[in-house]
């Protein structure tokens, strides 16, 4: 029985690292992985989701509704920014680095000016459970399931629905998609908004377990980029294995050698994975099937 407890404890660590990587990356997977916009403001979309969640929960909204508010408001901000700024950059995506970096510093400092240096947090719901003398947070134990659910939903959305197919078509060959009657502008808008909303959802999900400060996005940004880039070209296919591989190595190294080696190990793993699979994990999977 003790063995089972320890096995669960180890699994919990892996699942915790996995869900952090998946949720960090999931919005970016859409905006960067699919659209190619190098979104350095990804962390600020997460921050926006977290802030709105905290504020609406404190205003008396039940937590699930507060999280929906956080998600939607971040998506809305994404839509507006897409319309005003990002849309003009699709022909020169490298410039999106400058634009999103600018948005990022404006958002961080603007939030500091508007909302002050910190918000009073909200409590993590659901309490804890105990196994073999070790107690775990129920809420955090549920996050991996949420992450998997989201991955599944996203895969379904982009592979099975009409929107998803149009969206992928527009990303792959905008002119051809247009010729076939797809309104690419609307598709870009919706896709960007979706990515921003997903980032907001990440913020909403982590809001009860982290401190809400204007700079909180920086806690996610590195993890999000490494997970998404390592996923490779077909990000919907690659995100889960990428997060699993990186999460496993990070959890093992952190468990055996401490947080420093865990952090450094994660980054070294990224370098090694890219070296072994220069087109990312999905590229490696797809190589056999003849797709590029």
């Amino acid at each position: 029985m003790d063995f089972l407890y320890y096995a669960y404890a180890a699994f919990y660590q892996f699942a915790d690292a996995f869900s952090f990587l998946v949720l960090s990356g999931i919005g970016l997977a859409v905006i960067f992985g699919m659209m190619g916009v190098i979104n350095l403001a990804h962390g600020e979309f997460i921050m926006c989701g977290a802030y709105v969640t905290v504020l609406s929960a404190r205003a008396g909204l039940p937590l699930p509704f507060a999280m929906v508010c956080g998600t939607l408001s971040s998506g809305l901000v994404g839509l507006v920014l897409e319309r005003l700024i990002i849309r003009r950059l699709y022909q020169r995506l490298f410039d999106s680095i400058v634009a999103t970096w600018a948005i990022s510093i404006i958002a961080t400092q603007g939030m500091l000016i508007v909302a002050g240096p910190s918000l009073e947090g909200i409590k993590t719901p659901f309490g804890s459970f105990e196994l073999g003398g070790i107690s775990f947070s129920v809420y955090r134990a549920m996050l991996p399931a949420v992450a998997l659910l989201l991955l599944g939903a996203l895969y379904w959305l982009f592979v099975r629905t009409r929107f998803g197919i149009h969206s992928r078509a527009a990303m792959q060959d905008a002119d051809m998609a247009k010729a076939l009657g797809v309104s690419t502008n609307a598709i870009y808008s919706k896709t960007f908004g979706l990515g921003a909303a997903l980032a907001g959802l990440t913020g909403a999900l982590y809001a009860p377990t982290m401190t809400a400060v204007p700079t909180m996005g920086s806690a996610f940004i590195v993890q999000s980029f490494v997970t998404v880039v390592v996923s490779g070209a077909d990000v919907m296919l690659g995100l889960a294995p990428s997060a699993a591989a990186l999460g496993l190595i990070q959890a093992l190294l952190t468990g055996f050698h401490g947080q420093l080696i865990g952090q450094i190990g994660l980054l070294v793993t990224v370098i090694l994975v890219v070296r072994i699979m220069p087109t990312g994990i999905s590229g490696f999977f797809l190589r056999g099937s003849g797709s590029k």
């Binding site: 390592v230 450094i264 070294v268 890219v274 070296r275 220069p278 087109t279």
Partner: peptide, 30 residues
């Protein structure tokens, strides 16, 4: 050499170099 002779291209170059600098930072900080 590792990057270009290993067939690493485009955005992957960026993520490899970013990882290197962050490893340096994390290591030196402690």
């Amino acid at each position: 050499y590792l990057i270009f002779y290993g067939g690493i291209r485009e955005v992957f170059v960026g993520i490899v170099t970013l990882s290197v600098t962050l490893v340096f930072e994390t290591f030196m900080a402690q």
